[in-house]
């Protein structure tokens, strides 16, 4: 488990592998304590990403097909920062999400909600000189899952970020403010520290809300686990 220290206070940032409320963790969570690796072994830089592999249109999930997807158009804007607050430039961010009806374009998703022929739900972007990124997409729907009776995931967008070093690699989820399902979601609530949990909730933002076109949400991402950060394993 990674913990984070600010002013001598320990914050448990990441959720525990073994989280009984999240049922499938029981078969997959390790049972042995993690072994602390010598730092030179894991502090390996990721290769520089080939920028030509990501095109500006990859960040626009509303215009990947001849027609537009159905749903509430949103602009998700954020900055990717190191835990020292410095912007991380030229970093690859990948996202994937359900459509407005809460259905994924995935063979295993059997939620009886319609697929949208004009929505893939997948996007990617490279962060700019100020660590900034922006996606245009539609707001994903909530969807049911089998974790417990009448279980519903709150609306969310999945994010994958590499970081500079192997230790920074992060896969996370972005949630929406004031979603009544958040309170009941075992995945979101597996993050025990309230302040860390709040990092996962985007903020509604007038500045990026475009009149007559799209609602704006801000989602800043802060990477932990880099060289010299006060992360300690336990």
């Amino acid at each position: 488990m990674n913990r984070y220290q600010i002013g001598g206070v320990n914050y448990q940032i990441d959720p525990a592998y073994d989280t009984p409320e999240y049922r499938s963790s029981a078969q997959r969570a390790p049972t042995q304590p993690l072994v602390v690796a010598p730092s030179r072994l894991v502090e390996v830089s990721f290769p520089v990403f080939e920028e030509s592999k990501v095109l500006p249109r990859d960040a626009d999930l509303c215009h990947q097909f001849p027609q537009e997807p159905i749903g509430e158009r949103i602009r998700v804007t954020g900055r990717l920062l190191g835990s020292d607050g410095r912007p991380l430039v030229g970093q690859l961010i990948e996202i994937w999400q359900a459509n407005a009806a809460g259905r994924y374009r995935h063979a295993v998703d059997d939620h009886p909600a319609p697929l949208d022929p004009n929505f893939s739900g997948a996007g990617r972007v490279l962060t700019g000189p100020d660590g900034g990124f922006q996606f245009l997409t539609i707001k994903p729907g909530a969807y049911p899952w089998r974790n417990h009776p009448n279980a519903w995931r709150p609306a969310h967008i999945h994010f994958s970020i590499f970081g500079r070093l192997f230790t920074e690699r992060l896969v996370t989820q972005m949630f929406f403010p004031n979603d009544p399902l958040l309170e009941y979601d075992p995945i979101f609530n597996a993050v025990r520290e309230r302040r860390a949990r709040e990092r996962l909730i985007a903020r509604f933002d007038w500045d990026t809300t475009e009149e007559g076109y799209a609602l704006g949400y801000r989602f800043d991402i802060v990477m932990g686990g880099h060289l010299g950060s006060p992360l300690v394993a336990s």
Partner: peptide, 14 residues
């Protein structure tokens, strides 16, 4: 404070 990890879930392939 860093952004915490969340599961990749079952539907990431696409």
């Amino acid at each position: 404070l860093p952004t915490p990890s969340q599961t990749v879930g079952p539907f990431f392939s696409f």
